Simulated assay, not measured.
Amino acid sequence: MGKMKVLQIVRKSEGGMKKHLLSLVRLLDKDKYEIAVLCSFDKKTQEYLKKLGIAVYDIDIGDGISLKKDYRTIKFIRKVVNEFKPDIVHMHGAKASLVGRVACFAMPVKTVVTVHNFANYNNMSFYKKKLLLSLTKILDKKTHQFIAVSQALKDDLVLNQNVKENKIKVVYNCIDISFYEETTLNLKEEFNLPQDSFIVGSVARLIPAKGVQDLIKAASILKNVNAYFFVAGDGPFREELQKMIDSLNLKDRFFLLGYRNDIPSFLRNLNVFVLPSHEEGFGISVIEALSEGVPVVATKVGGIPEIIQDGVEGILVEKESPEELAKAIEKFLKDEELRKNISLRGKESVGKYSCNKMIEEIYKIYDTLKGR
């Protein structure tokens, strides 16, 4: 019996979706699976994939809806499917699953969609939204398998998209540090900070939904606390966030570090990790922080409460509440015993996010689809 062929489709991304895709294709057994990736990733990432023995098809899938551009993308995907002849086409995220499923419509392949985030129809005209919802409803019925990276996303698919519950499997993302660089990062030395100061940090794409603006406001509330704030990540909201930092006179205490590929080293510098998201499909940076023994403050949105029990593995607060964020951060900074106890419990809880467990669940899904 020959190898099962799997085509992965994903748009350009730098967060949990990209981490998940890279972990998945790295871990899939190359003796059992022949893998191709159709993506919009940067050249460095594409070279990484090629070194793994993976065929890479480069195309800019984009993010919004553009009929002319999307038509070209759909045409290209059909060409790749006809050339590669996959048994399964596995799509990640809303945009890739839209163009991918349209391209595969009526083609002899099994389709899998991994849902990483909640559907977002903001900034979309009424007619475009109506068209998209109608098309999605048709495509959902034809999709063979959905994977949700949290129970919250599964519930949303059932309630808001009317996807049948038995077509959705929850498979959590895993902790995979294999593609990070290991550095001897020392933020106190690098930024000439007092040795007795506390370091509060976050890892987030700089967009409004990640709530970094709330963390900046919380830092302003905590002006009398001996703490410094660092955010690893980049994005289109960076300039606005920097203006906020400057206007609140926080430029000596709050630092936007930009994109980093040494996240484990960064996390080990922190006394407290904060994820102030307004919405979050899963929250992979939370489990990365827990695995490094860093106590976590996060908002109780999306999949985060599936990772953190309030007061057990971390502290949960309401979204868009800088006051609650500030109070939770200060609680950790003032109580060393609390930090130790919660970080220990957090580190003990991350076993269920092993890469072996994730890949075994994916194997079951692929094998079941191949057998249909």
Rank of each mutant, 00 (worst) to 15 (best):
127 Y>M: 05
95 K>V: 06
348 E>T: 00
22 L>V: 03
129 K>W: 05
173 N>M: 14
320 E>W: 08
221 I>V: 14
188 K>G: 09
364 K>C: 09
307 I>Y: 10
350 V>C: 04
362 I>A: 04
280 E>R: 06
326 A>Q: 10
305 P>Y: 07
123 N>A: 00
340 K>F: 14
244 M>I: 06
192 N>K: 05
81 V>Q: 03
114 T>N: 10
343 S>V: 09
205 R>W: 14
65 I>P: 11
333 L>P: 09
158 V>L: 10
19 K>S: 14
74 I>Y: 01
369 L>F: 04
323 E>H: 05
318 E>H: 11
204 A>Q: 03
31 D>M: 13
235 G>T: 10
224 N>S: 06
328 A>W: 12
370 K>E: 15
242 Q>M: 07
368 T>W: 09
213 Q>E: 09
240 E>H: 01
20 H>L: 04
334 K>G: 13
33 Y>C: 00
18 K>R: 00
283 G>A: 04
57 Y>T: 12
32 K>W: 09
114 T>P: 04
129 K>R: 12
96 A>I: 03
233 G>R: 03
345 R>Q: 15
108 P>Q: 08
201 G>F: 08
58 D>C: 12
275 L>G: 11
151 Q>T: 15
259 Y>Q: 10
112 V>Q: 08
249 N>C: 05
53 G>Q: 05
158 V>P: 00
244 M>N: 08
261 N>D: 12
8 Q>R: 02
321 S>E: 02
74 I>L: 05
166 N>F: 00
334 K>R: 10
